[in-house]
Design a protein around this nucleic acid. Structure first.
Lengths: 230, 230
DNA sequence: ACCTGAACACCGTTCAAGT
DNA sequence: ACCTGAACACCGTTCAAGT
């Protein structure tokens, strides 16, 4: 050992230049979205996610603390696709309708995220907060009282989440099968859903019809009971 | 070996007397409910369910085809706890409100069943069909057109499912944390939710407030747009 | 027909060890 | 700080074998 060797500085990075990590929140989010779009949420496992990033599964835990964390990253990314632009240009009721429909459409394709949105704090979800800010401003601009806005938004969101499930319901969800005789009125209502005369079988999107009906009802009802004083 | 032994009839059951099985749908449902009430849905595993019935896990598959099947059994049992009696005695809007609130309360305590209700056909769910029959009769008695009833019920259910999630949301779900400066209007709306003056901090159930607001709005809106002609 | 025991093909997560 | 490899403690489900 020479004295020189003692003073030898081993492979050392220049100050202010952190090591180039293989992973990052952005790369994880992107890989997760790609995995989901190709194989659905059943294909989104920590092992598959790691593989798609050419990394060991345990490496993911240096950047997220759990799979829930990955889902939150994906959720926040998708929240950026919810349309809030109408709140700046259109009347309140039209803007709410546009926002609600795009919100439903985005998460109808990502059902497993609904418990995540509905139950996880918005802290560390910047795009989600941005969405809420735009919505709140739209309500304020329409003359809503500050103290009523969150309740109204939560009520609308509840309807939106439930409607996102309904988009994915099978066509025959209300087929009573052998129980028909015990539920004649319900069976008839199901058979005649949307068309007064049984003969005409018009092609129809049942989920859209229910969503439009409920959305119009809630918007009208909110405007009448909690909206701005005329 | 004697001739007698050859003719010996081994333990044989009398005709028309099926063997007394250890398991049945009713026993499985009951055990599952008990497991959930004590340990939550994370405690409802096929292994735990089998153990509580003193049976091997594989034995369950002689009576249900999957865990989804167990969840459907539990769901249908719980649907019997949803109150439909008001449809026979009270005016339509009051009856709907009572039904919706009990529906929300039942499944707020059973969130993992919501995807099951929302996505699985009602075939083989007799209590669920019975519930729908009573609701349909209530709508018919109030003068609703047959072709609009299912859409209205689906819209109400969507709101109910989303509201069940909201009951379980943490108090701080809208805490923006360090993002407050980027969402001033939203932050203020959250801070003043329910109370006009910031000083008074009245105890308040936020989920109930949003549910009541949304339910009143939707009921009023439905009555105005799709209800019976006056 | 109904149940057991063993096995299968997965999960998410942890942790000592390396750089 | 970040990654690997191996292990852990589970899951739901299947299936040959028994009665």
């Amino acid at each position: 050992m020479t004295e020189f060797a003692v003073h030898h500085v081993p492979t050392r990075r220049r100050a202010g230049r952190p090591p180039q990590a293989l992973l990052s929140s952005a790369r994880i989010t992107k890989a997760a979205l790609k995995l989901v779009s190709h194989h659905g949420y059943k294909g989104l496992t920590m092992a598959a996610l790691a593989k798609s990033l050419n990394v060991a599964p345990s490496a993911l835990y240096n950047h997220v603390s759990s799979k829930q964390d990955v889902l939150l990253l994906v959720e926040d990314h998708l929240m950026g696709r919810v349309e809030v632009c109408a709140f700046a240009t259109e009347p309140w009721d039209a803007a709410v309708a546009k926002w609600a429909r795009s919100y439903r459409d985005v998460f109808a394709a990502h059902l497993p995220l609904i418990p995540v949105i509905a139950l996880l704090p918005v802290t560390n979800a910047p795009a989600t907060v941005t969405m809420y800010e735009a919505v709140t401003q739209g309500f304020l601009a329409a003359g809503w009282a500050r103290e009523s806005i969150i309740d109204a938004v939560v009520a609308l969101e509840s309807f939106i989440y439930g409607s996102a499930y309904d988009v994915n319901a099978p066509e025959d969800i209300f087929d009573v099968g052998s129980l028909a005789s015990e539920a004649p009125d319900f069976s008839a209502a199901v058979a005649h859903r949307g068309n007064p005369d049984a003969a005409a079988a018009i092609p129809r999107n049942d989920a859209d019809a229910a969503f439009t009906l409920g959305l119009q009802a809630m918007i009208a009802g909110l405007a009448a009971t909690a909206g701005p004083r005329k």
